[in-house]
Design a protein around this nucleic acid. Structure first.
Lengths: 250, 250
DNA sequence: GGCTAACCTTGACACAGATCAAGCGCGAAC
DNA sequence: GTTCGCGCTTGATCTGTGTCAAGGTTAGCC
């Protein structure tokens, strides 16, 4: 039952190249299994702005983000686009058992991925039960995140949406600097206003206006366009309309 | 590799009591495994309107819907609610490895569930690799559905949202009657206007108005408030703004 | 330095959908 | 039959966000 307990996030980069260990220290990752993964892995680098995968393309690999940020987006015929996922370091990409990609995957910063050829990875998954079990855990986490985001998209105001997005960065961005004593934290926005708009179901103008408003009201401080200081995290979470529990470092 | 191929939906009720076989005929479900599942299963019935599970509750079972319809909803402190999932017969409920429920689960019709006590089910999952593999497939399907819904919530107009919801019923409602020759199909709406609004991020008034508009424009016919005829499915899919591919019986 | 292009901000106005309000239709209970 | 209540429809009005437009800021490049 041990394997099934809530993953520990204390050291998410314990083994940054193994998607199965990512986002949790997985006590069952035996050395020989890691070595088997080792033999089918390779690295790929991408530049900011580059599209790694087009929706509908054949995907012959799965993998995980080593550094940088990528987004999953869906686009309608008339050009409306919605971001459906945000890939931060250690996040997994790809769907074992399916060949066609369902979304565009775009690097928003320079990006390094650790990839595994899909067929051998699937074979390993068949032979090594806990890989599927670990992927299941990770997919369930993704599903929870997607559903939480449905509440944001469906029911929150523009201001709450922006605050929610900032909370996500506050929770998940590994690059943030924290000064816990003051409930303060500092990070750089990894997305343009337009990308934020696509995540939030807004226009870039509304994003800009709401960020300005949050700044005027002292909920955040801005230095330049990207460098953000959150002087009071609980205030931000209040603005996001979240239940108080969803704090940082869950 | 066989196990990983796209599940066949030709006979979703092949074994309606086994969540692992649900929504797909799983060739690996061996008889002795089914018997093991048999020993830990039990049925529960619920009345329309009843809340099966409250968000935050302990959940000591997993299971799947045998008949009826249930919804997963999230609620904010001020009462705004968003439906984040719709459970139709054969859909799976519960999260192996987590005790607290993340959403309210509400029966919108009378409902029968086939449940499995969680601990023994998890134990079986550890011992029977393809259970986790099958659950992974199902969860990935759920994730795709959730992400598709994010596009609906974030970027579609009220009219498109309604058409999208009707398309879902057209695709998934097992109770529908099809007359393929005429591209026509008939079914009963399983949700109130309010529940549809909660699914779509709208108000019930807007739902009502848009349904009236689709009716006036001949996209649908209504008999009473619930009985719907779709005279031209491709017309409906156009209204939903979907790419043409997302048709019925995929 | 100045030029360019991408990114961002701000303003004025329009409109889709929310809100508030009234009343209808129909099944259930009596 | 009558009444009640819930689910639904429709109308009038309000408002948050989109749309269109102009101009500002910054980093990179000559």
């Amino acid at each position: 039952m041990n394997m099934l307990k809530e993953p520990s996030l204390s050291n998410p980069h314990d083994c940054v190249d193994c998607p199965i260990r990512h986002r949790a220290v997985c006590a069952r990752c035996e050395t020989d299994e890691l070595e088997a993964l080792e033999q089918i892995k390779y690295y790929r680098s991408f530049q900011a702005g580059q599209t790694l995968i087009w929706s509908g393309d054949q995907m012959d690999f799965v993998g995980s983000v080593v550094s940088g940020i990528a987004t999953l987006t869906q686009t309608m015929e008339d050009g409306r686009t919605q971001m459906v996922g945000l890939l931060l370091p250690s996040d997994f990409v790809g769907r074992p058992g399916r060949d066609g990609a369902a979304y565009d995957v775009v690097a928003t910063t320079d990006l390094v991925m650790c990839c595994f050829r899909k067929k051998p990875f699937e074979r390993m998954m068949m032979e090594t039960p806990h890989i599927a079990q670990r992927l299941l855990e990770m997919t369930l986490d993704e599903l929870d995140a997607a559903r939480e985001w449905m509440l944001v998209l469906g029911r929150k105001t523009a201001r709450e949406k922006i605050a929610s997005l900032l909370s996500i960065f506050a929770r998940r961005d590994a690059s943030l600097k924290v000064d816990v004593s003051k409930d303060t934290l500092v990070f750089d926005l990894p997305l343009t206003r337009e990308a934020m708009a696509d995540y939030l179901g807004l226009t870039l103008e509304t994003v800009s206006r709401q960020i300005s408003a949050l700044k005027k009201d002292g909920v955040i401080h801005l230095e330049g366009k990207r460098h953000v200081t959150i002087p009071n995290l609980s205030r931000l979470l209040e603005e996001a309309g979240d239940d108080a529990d969803g704090g940082i470092m869950v």
